[in-house]
Design a protein around this nucleic acid. Structure first.
Lengths: 140, 140
DNA sequence: TTCGTTGCAAACAGTTTGCATGCGG
DNA sequence: CCGCATGCAAACTGTTTGCAACGAA
């Protein structure tokens, strides 16, 4: 996502491209999985004075624009990541907190079955599976 | 879970069976999926003066005892449900908020694959799948 | 000048902690 | 009497909202 195309998307809706919005989107891309607070810190490393409120509002806006997605990993803050990338399922280790990504294709059989049997359409881009990663399993 | 066996479990750890603890556990069983606040309200319908703090502390205790489990359904409060019942996966409709339950067996192929390929042990009792239920799909 | 955007402060929801009281064993 | 358990108030985290000021078109 270049600054100019972001500007174009915003202009279509009568909105402006501001330094804050550009930096926040860049931060989400750099960080991969980031909470609003993490994004806030990353942005502030570059420029001072960006408010956490703006981060929240901008992340919401970027999600409306389809540029980022958010997921709820266990408790606490949601994490944002760039959209447009391949969708992925999150593997969250409850022991060390690490987040791995996985191809959602492995869930397709399950999704098909839920659609047929339960009439439920799973949003595969929004799935988090909790468990214990190999590293933590060893040291138990 | 009878009051006497709950009492026994508590005594094993040097803890007491109080009316609050008994009522809170009963409420979780009655409600099925309940947030701490919902439990609090349910308990207060029976007896006045039970503090929300006590609900939090007791739910945590009951979870340590293995009597209840909690899951994070999207944002906001966690929901508690009785353990010991069959484990189940939650199907959460993002549109109407309804919660259906599902046999986690449908996830076993996925879990096996993750264990073999990624060395990741999924906690099937803790899975929530987000999407749209049939009812909401119709009215779109 | 208009209106989107921001920062600040305050409100807000959910949760946790410290502390004094109180009751059971 | 000892120590678990509770209630209350206050702190705390994460998030949202109201409002005035700023600045680009």
């Amino acid at each position: 996502m270049s600054a100019t195309s972001l500007a174009a998307m915003l202009r279509e809706r009568g909105l402006r491209l501001t330094p804050q919005r550009q930096l926040i989107l860049e931060a989400v891309h750099e960080l991969g999985h980031a909470t609003p607070e993490t994004v806030h810190n990353a942005v502030r490393e570059r420029v001072a004075g960006v408010n956490i409120t703006t981060v929240y509002r901008t992340l919401e806006l970027l999600e409306e624009l389809g540029l980022v997605n958010h997921t709820h990993l266990s408790h606490g803050s949601p994490t944002y990541h760039p959209a447009g990338e391949d969708q992925h399922v999150h593997l969250v280790c409850r022991s060390c907190g690490s987040i791995e990504e996985m191809d959602p294709a492995v869930l397709l059989p399950v999704c098909d079955r839920l659609r047929d049997e339960r009439d439920f359409r799973v949003d595969v881009g929004h799935v988090s599976l909790f468990g214990v990663c190999g590293k933590c399993k060893e040291s138990e």
